[in-house]
Every structure is written in C-alpha cells, then in structure tokens.
Nucleic acid binder design. Structure first.
Length: 593
RNA sequence: GCACCCGUAGCUCAGCUGGAUAGAGCAUCUGGCUUCGAACCAGAGGGUCGGGAGUUCGAAUCUCUCCGGGUGCGCCA
C-alpha cells in the first residue's frame, strides 16, 4: 500500500529530472521517507522528499513540493489527493479502493502475511549455548527467548536460518564436572567423599553419577583419573545436553545443530588455526601483550587478581583491528585458551558460507565482540557479517532483594522451574517486550502475581475475539464466504476511519518484520501487534451499538468479516513470528474479590 | 583509569535509524455490559525526554562534554 506512494514519488522525481526541473542527477539516491503520519488529519502517508531535496536543489522545500504535486505521476492510480503542509511535507491521501484492497492482499497471504519471499540468504543464529555442566538456568532465559524470536524473525524475513547451540564440552569446567561426577559415583558405592571448592555441589550431579553407574557398573571405581575422566565427561555432558534440550523444548525453542567444541580440539583444528595465524604473520611470542606492560588496571579487576597466572605465550594481533589489546591464543605450555577454540568455531561458521552470522551473547561476554571480529578479520573474513546481540543482565529480585544465583553454591534457579511457575508465553513476553540491550529486573514476586494479568493475555484475547466473531457469524447463518466473494464493490462498505486505519496498519506488517529482522529487534513486531489490537478493541467497542460487524446487510457483513479475518490472520502470523500461541478461545480469569 | 550498554509519565518500557501536538501498559480517579467475548473500551491527571553545548528548515533520535546506574577489561569457559 505504501508502495503506491513510494512508486509515485520516484516516478515523479524521474519525470521532473527529465524535464529539467530537478538538477539532482539521481533523485532516487536521496533517502526520502514515506511514513504514516501520527496525525490522521495529515492523510495516509507523509513524504519528506521536498525537504530532503531542498539543500541539493538549492530551492525552498515548499517550492519543490509544489513542483512535485504539479507534476505528480500516479503510477498505480491510487492517490486521491496530495497536500503540502508544514515546512514542506507531502501528505498523500489514497483512494478508498487502494485502502480496502489490503483486505484481499492480507487474506490471500493468510497466516503467512508479513513474511517475505525467500531472500536466498543464509543466516546462522547461535543462542543459549549454556555450559553443559548443568541445567539451563534463569540467566539463560532472556537469551533463549530473544534468540528464538530472532531466529523466527529472520526466517519470516525470508532468510534460510540455522539455529545453533555451541557446546563447551572441553576445558577446565567440564573436567571439574567429570571429577565431581566421579565423586558422586564413588558415593553410590558407599565411599566417603568431600567436594573441594569449585566442584559442583548441586543435586543433579548425583543423577549424572547414577546414570553413569547404570551404564558402566563399578568398573571405574578404583581406577586413576586419567582413565575415567574422559568417560565421566562424556556421560555428564551427554546427560546435561539432554536435559538442556528438554528445557528448551518447554521454552518453545529449538536448535537445528549442536556444535561440539571438543570435536574442534580432537580434529586438530584449533592447532591448525594457530598455524594459520602464524603463517599470516598475525602472532608473536611474548610474556605480556604489546603495550600492556604498564597498563593501569583497577586493583579489584580480575586481570590484576589473576596476574600471577599469566605467564605469556603466543599472542594474536587483535589490537590492530579494534581490540583493546592483543589476546593470547597459546599458553606458555602450548595449550590453547577458550578464545582460540572460539576463533576456530567462528572460522568454521564463515567457512559454512553464511551471509549473516548472529551471536546472541550475555552482556558479560561483551568483551568477546572485538576479539572475535578482529580474529575473523585476521583470517581474511568480512567481520561485518558477524553480528552480536548482547542480551543485558537480568537482575533476579525476590522480596525486594537481589537473588544471587551461583552454580558454585548449588543455588541454581532453573529455567524449567520458571516456565513451570509462570508459563512459557508470559515468560517469553516479559523478555520480548524490551530491547535486548537494556538491563532489566526480574521480580519473582511480581511475576507470579502478574502471571494472571500479563500483557500476553491482552494480545491473545484480541485474536480470540476475532475468532469468536467469525464463529458467531457462522452460527447466525452468515459465515465468512472467503476471498472469492470479496469484490471491490463489496469492500467499499469499509468506510469508517477506524477500518481504514486498521487496513493501513496491517499493510505495514511485512515492512515491520523486514525492519525488525534487519535490526535484530523482535520487540518491534510485538509493539506492532499491540497497536493493531488496541485499534481493533477500540473499533469494536465504539461501534458495538451502531455499526456492528454482523448485520442484515449481507455485503457489509461480508466486508467486515473480511476485515476481522484479516486482523486475525495478521495477529496469528505476527504471533508465530514471536513464538507466541494464538488461541481461538480463552477462559476469563477468576474475579478477585 | 579504559571500553561498551542504559537514563523518556509515580512504576515498567516504546518512539519506525532526523520529522508535524513525545506514546503504550501498569498504578490512581471518573464513566461504560438486555444484543457480535468487559482478559475490553471511553475520559482525566501525570513530562526541564538526566544536565549543558553544538550540528540544521527541524533533535528524545546525530556529535561533544559533564552527572547518575550497570557490565566488562582472565593465560576461566
């Protein structure tokens, strides 16, 4: 619908250029906008092209506006009138048929309205990637829902999306897990064990040990660590990943691939990447990174705290490409660090040929962004393809106090429990309503109280109401006859300003989705839904006694049912993009006394 | 100390990459169900868009600088 205006403006600019009225050689290149104005009195779409052109043309905007109006080329024959207003806005009013035609467009697309045709682009979204040392906890909740919604969104925008989970099944943390499991395992055979600091005291480790015992029996009981550790890790990681998948399913999130870090090590690819960097001259051996000899660090910073463990080794020239300092990739003893494997992993992502590579990270990993980008640049990759969504910290609050969750102390608040308590959709909503990069408080008391008046129900209610009206019409002998019966003449019945406004709004969904996918901001789709639903409720209530949907006028009834069906389809499609259920029926909550 | 994020109504947050009179939900107050779903609607109050300067036809939006809150700055992962 908006393209009626955009096309007309572009055609007009081209014509004016040919006539010599405009000097600008490439009027298309100027970035003008066509947007629905806030004030409905300003028509259907407002265009700022005259003001944008004013400078290059050296003419006052209003004069340019007049020239455009005078020479308007209405490509689609959809424009009723154009007004010049304010500093030089062009306010377009579209013909009634141009507006009502949206109903047919939306209904033809049905529940896929808003989705774009295939872009041919491949996008990788990595999200959650919780350590396989335990269950998914509340700290992963936001990344889980945001990542899942992003994947849905990118897919809706026409991209071929792969959802990936990176399994950190290598290194000290899983080794510690393996040792803890072995202790619990011994415990199952009646041995006395005591956990040391850093090991995992939580109950679930006992389950892991039990699974191990069931499979292997007592054979690892009195063996040296060198023999059983790998097996303990294997069983522990496998069981944890299974549990993680179960929780993610509860959250409505699915991954296509689980990428194991250890396979990179075992295949020698981590070593290989270091060799590649070396061959490219991107490394050097030293005790400390260049330029950091007299770097001032806060005493309480961890860098200062762990200074004695930093013995030097092989560094990568990440500081040449935007990082604060060069990063070590091989320790003095020749072992690779976490970053080295992560660089290898991201190199693999690039080699798989994606057009966009999106990482959903917790904000505490913000420091990785410049390193990874620099590392990819040093391999000759286009680091612009690598994008990050930094999900900010969620502060957990209970009784007005911040709750400290800690794996070390075994005080884990599992995502599965949260979903169980609040419900997946309300939970999803809480996280999707805000931009990812704003930190939020998650008040457990309020969440429980609010589980019943969560905004998600307002949204779903809008959809259920549409469904109910369509059902009612059928019961009263006037079922919605579908697209075929909707001639333009029938649709002329949709004349109310509110109807026009809703149609205009619905026509914008594809753009909203494309835009949200582009900027990686799923909340835009949510706010679109909110606005459409509000308009619908308002419309419905306002005309409850005067202009009802179901009347004796069969054509008018069909036209309005079509509108309702279009709203319903739009909502259903948009909800699916967010990952929220769109029920046809809802039962009202209990009234509070 | 350095880097990144945030600061908009009492609270939680939008604000479409610079547009016309800054919005929504919650909370407070007033009103609305004999007929398509009241988990709804209509209305009211509530704002130095953290402060200041700059860029221009035009700034919540861009730049700079302060203030306040957060997170990083590890040879843990």
């Amino acid at each position: 619908m908006k393209h009626f205006v955009t096309d007309a403006v572009q055609a007009t600019l081209a014509a004016l250029h040919q006539q010599g009225v405009l000097k600008t050689s490439a009027p298309r290149a100027v970035g003008f906008s066509v947007d629905p104005p806030k004030n409905a009195a300003h028509g259907d779409f407002a265009c700022n092209v005259a003001m944008v052109l004013a400078k290059v043309e050296g003419q006052p905007p209003r004069k340019l506006a007049e020239a455009i109006v005078a020479g308007l080329v209405d490509v689609h024959g959809a424009i009723d009138k154009v007004d010049i207003a304010g500093p030089g806005f062009l306010n377009f009013t579209l013909s009634a048929r141009a507006v009502t035609g949206v109903v047919r467009t939306v209904l033809a697309a049905g529940e896929t309205w808003g989705r774009s045709p295939s872009s041919g682009k491949r996008v990788l979204v990595e999200y959650v990637s919780a350590n396989p040392t335990g269950p998914v906890h509340i700290g992963h909740a936001r990344g889980t829902f945001v990542g899942d919604a992003l994947a849905r969104l990118l897919s809706a925008a026409g991209h071929d999306v792969v959802r990936e989970f990176y399994v950190n099944d290598w290194g000290k943390q899983v080794e510690t897990l393996g040792r803890t499991i072995h202790k619990r395992y011994r415990e199952l055979f009646g041995q006395q064990v005591t956990l040391v600091d850093g090991e995992y005291p939580a109950e679930y480790v006992k389950d892991l040990a039990r699974a191990w015992k069931d499979e292997d029996g007592a054979c690892w009981l009195d063996q040296p660590e060198a023999l059983w550790l790998e097996r303990a890790i294997e069983v522990g990681v496998r069981e944890n990943v299974t549990a993680i998948k179960r929780t993610l399913a509860l959250a409505g999130a699915q991954h296509d691939t689980f990428f194991s870090e250890s396979t990179l090590h075992k295949a020698g690819r981590v070593r290989a990447i270091v060799d590649t960097y070396r061959a490219r001259g991107a490394t050097y051996d030293a005790d400390v990174a260049r330029g950091t000899e007299d770097k001032v660090r806060r005493d309480e910073s961890k860098a200062a705290q762990f200074e004695d463990r930093q013995k030097g080794g092989t560094f990568l020239l990440t500081a040449d490409h935007g990082d604060d300092e060069d990063r070590i990739i091989l320790r003095r003893d020749g072992t690779p660090v976490y970053l080295t494997a992560d660089l290898t992993y991201h190199h693999d992502k690039f080699e798989r040929g994606f057009d966009r590579i999106v990482d959903v990270f917790g904000a505490d990993h913000a420091g990785h962004v410049p390193r990874l980008k620099a590392g990819m640049t040093l391999l000759g990759h286009d680091a612009k393809k690598l994008e990050f969504v930094l999900v900010q910290i969620v502060r957990l609050v209970r009784d007005g106090q911040e709750v400290k969750v800690s794996k070390r102390k075994g005080t884990v608040f599992e995502l599965a429990d949260l979903i169980d308590e609040v419900g997946a959709d309300p939970c999803r909503f809480i996280f999707l309503m805000k931009t990812a990069n704003a930190q939020i408080d998650f008040d457990l008391d309020i969440v429980q109280k609010k589980a019943n008046d969560n905004p998600v129900y307002t949204f779903q209610y809008g959809h259920a109401r549409c469904a109910s009206i369509l059902k009612k019409a059928a019961e009263q002998g006037q079922p919605f006859a579908g697209l075929d019966a909707l001639t333009p003449a029938v649709l002329d019945a949709l004349m109310l300003p509110e109807e026009r406004a809703m149609l205009k709004k619905m026509s914008l969904l594809p753009e909203v989705v494309a835009n949200a996918a582009d900027t990686l901001e799923p909340h835009r789709v949510l706010y679109f839904c909110q606005e459409l639903i509000a308009e619908f409720h308002s419309y419905f209530t306002k005309y409850k006694r005067t202009e009802r949907v179901i009347t004796d006028d069969r054509d008018k009834t069909q036209a309005r049912l079509a509108l309702v069906a279009a709203v319903k389809a739009t909502l259903k499609s948009a909800f699916a993009i967010l990952g929220v259920d769109a029920p046809d029926h809802m039962t009202a909550p209990e009234e509070d006394a």
